[in-house]
Amino acid sequence: MHLTSRGFPLFLTFDLDAETMWTARDPNYASRPILMSQGAYGWKVGTDRVLKLLARYGLKTTFFIPGLIIDQRPELMERILEGGHEIAHHSYSHAWILNLTPEQEREEMEKGFESIRRVTGRAPRGWRSPAAEISAVTMPMLVEYGFDYSSNFFDDDSPYIHTVEGKRTKIVELPFRWVLDDAPFFQYSIVLPGRTMQAPSALLEAWKAEFDVLYAEKRMMMVGMHPEMIGQPSRIGVLEGLIKHALDHGGVWIGRCDEMVEDMRPGLERAA
């Protein structure tokens, strides 16, 4: 039996980090215009290329966006929302959580929360950590702020409900793994870790293979992408190739994280 009423859940998500990919690691990078331009590609070109592709297939998805980018790019936020997409929480400045005090982490949470509420008119329902890290206070804070889902952990191929401080919560985890992220294949910068640049065909081959196994096992697939990477001309075809491959199979739901979580929650609660 599939996890949702509409079949196999395929999550296409986009982390619009833009310049914060660099400035969160070192604020002095803001004075290096070529580094900043690599991040700016995400909001100047990449996101609109992604939005155009999604619109062509009639798809609504989720964008995890730091509050700073939301504040700086209101016109782009309007275009994302006009496409019917969800904006979810991705911190405020993309700061590395393990370098923050609990007070600083709370400030990141609150500022990002308010940025999303201002542009969408509602509280964010989902949260993804910057740089795939959490602290001892992160999960209790997600409970406090009333989040419905998180997409952070690497420990499963199926969703599950979190237990925090010994208490069962309503937070559904949508796990993923690095092979389902475009950054290990495409991220290249002289100052960032990784520094890889593989052929788009390698990533499409990996994602198709992942899809085939997960679909056969009736699990889920969470794909994480960055508009400054996947939105480049040679790479947008990877996203379209995955969409086509998925739609060639029956009973696949490509949708927003919030809507899909709401659909799958009753089954997860019954199974617990």
Score class of each variant (00 low, 15 high):
residue 76 L to N: 10
residue 76 L to A: 10
residue 78 E to R: 15
residue 78 E to C: 10
residue 78 E to L: 07
residue 78 E to P: 10
residue 79 R to D: 06
residue 80 I to A: 09
residue 82 E to D: 14
residue 82 E to A: 13
residue 82 E to P: 12
residue 83 G to K: 13
residue 85 H to T: 09
residue 87 I to P: 05
residue 88 A to V: 10
residue 88 A to N: 06
residue 89 H to Q: 04
residue 89 H to Y: 11
residue 90 H to Y: 10
residue 92 Y to S: 02
residue 92 Y to F: 00
residue 93 S to I: 06
residue 93 S to L: 07
residue 94 H to N: 05
residue 94 H to V: 11
residue 95 A to I: 10
residue 98 L to R: 15
residue 98 L to H: 14
residue 99 N to G: 04
residue 99 N to S: 09
residue 100 L to W: 05
residue 100 L to R: 12
residue 101 T to Q: 01
residue 101 T to A: 00
residue 103 E to D: 15
residue 104 Q to C: 01
residue 106 R to C: 01
residue 107 E to S: 08
residue 107 E to D: 12
residue 108 E to H: 12
residue 109 M to N: 03
residue 109 M to R: 14
residue 110 E to G: 05
residue 110 E to R: 05
residue 112 G to T: 00
residue 114 E to P: 00
residue 115 S to K: 04
residue 117 R to Q: 13
residue 119 V to A: 07
residue 120 T to P: 15
residue 121 G to E: 09
residue 122 R to V: 11
residue 122 R to Q: 15
residue 123 A to V: 05
residue 124 P to T: 03
residue 125 R to W: 13
residue 126 G to K: 03
residue 128 R to E: 12
residue 128 R to H: 02
residue 131 A to C: 13
residue 132 A to L: 15
residue 133 E to K: 14
residue 135 S to W: 07
residue 135 S to Y: 03
residue 136 A to G: 05
residue 137 V to A: 08
residue 137 V to F: 13
residue 137 V to D: 15
residue 138 T to N: 07
residue 139 M to N: 00
residue 140 P to Y: 00
residue 141 M to Q: 08
residue 141 M to E: 03
residue 143 V to Q: 01
residue 144 E to V: 02
residue 145 Y to K: 11
